[in-house]
Nucleic acid binder design. Sequence first.
DNA 1: ACTCAAATAATAATTTTTATCAATTAACAC
DNA 2: GTGTTAATTGATAAAAATTATTATTTGAGT
Lengths: 147, 147
Amino acid sequence: MTDNKDRYEIIIQKLRDNGHKITPQRLAIVKILAKSEGHPSVEDIYVQIKKDFPTMSLATVYKNILLIKSLGEVLELGFPDGSNRYDGKKPYPHPHVICIKCRKIVEPDLDSLDGMKKEVSLETHFNILYHRLDFFGICSDCRIKER
Amino acid sequence: MTDNKDRYEIIIQKLRDNGHKITPQRLAIVKILAKSEGHPSVEDIYVQIKKDFPTMSLATVYKNILLIKSLGEVLELGFPDGSNRYDGKKPYPHPHVICIKCRKIVEPDLDSLDGMKKEVSLETHFNILYHRLDFFGICSDCRIKER
DNA sequence: ACTCAAATAATAATTTTTATCAATTAACAC
DNA sequence: GTGTTAATTGATAAAAATTATTATTTGAGT
Ligand SMILES: [Mn+2]
Ligand SMILES: [Mn+2]
Ligand SMILES: [Zn+2]
Ligand SMILES: [Zn+2]
């Protein structure tokens, strides 16, 4: 809840540094990605911007996310059921805990992850570059509602 | 590399127990899922069966996987780039190590996973039901080729 | 052998993402 | 400030993956 502003500035600066134009559409998309509240989908981002920017095109959202992804400034989370979701606040791999009832997403601190990475490297002889770790379950709110 | 036969029998039996018909198409699909060599995609399964079963329909593969998934006998692995892949040999969650060069998939033993699950439960107050853990990197074969 | 609900095959529809391209515009030079 | 130009946008078509539909076929019980 502190470095939203930073993330926004960092992404814009990276776009500038790589010679990309700064358009109002792009700014609107980056603004949402920098917060990434609830890990939005492309559709989420599109709908939200369309409210006060009715000319926004869905293709523009897709193209900008592709660009920002190529700069390493947004993390893409794919799910089997379709529609990817994005995190521009933490663009590096990190674990998520997802409630299968209400779709809430929480980000736990896991000290044991680095050790696990080394364990995998030693066992498989892979040079590990990144990872994906999700836990699925029921959050405490939903457990209370259920009874 | 031992229990392919078992997995085949188990899945067929489960289908029977739940009142589903045993068709030649279904048998062919289960046969491939029971092995799940290389974690095949729907397309992989379809192409492989089509060779000696030319009337096989892609929709039939999809529908059977949906059914077997609903019986908890196959694990679905989604990736951001599209096409899901399947594991009917180990239908429960387990970690994968994926080479981003040659797409090879390895299954490491990770002792630290159970502890991590508890760590997450305590920290987030979620009731964790399942998880997804993938490591991405370069396998030793590909590293040798690269230099 | 007969019956019938379930499964298959073929195909249409849907969903998500990428490609195409004419029109617009941000960034730079002057 | 004006002009130039290549990047970007918006609209839409195309592609790719999955699900739905439906007439036809068939497995399994009687
Ligand atoms: Mn996140
Ligand atoms: Mn597996
Ligand atoms: Zn919940
Ligand atoms: Zn490799």
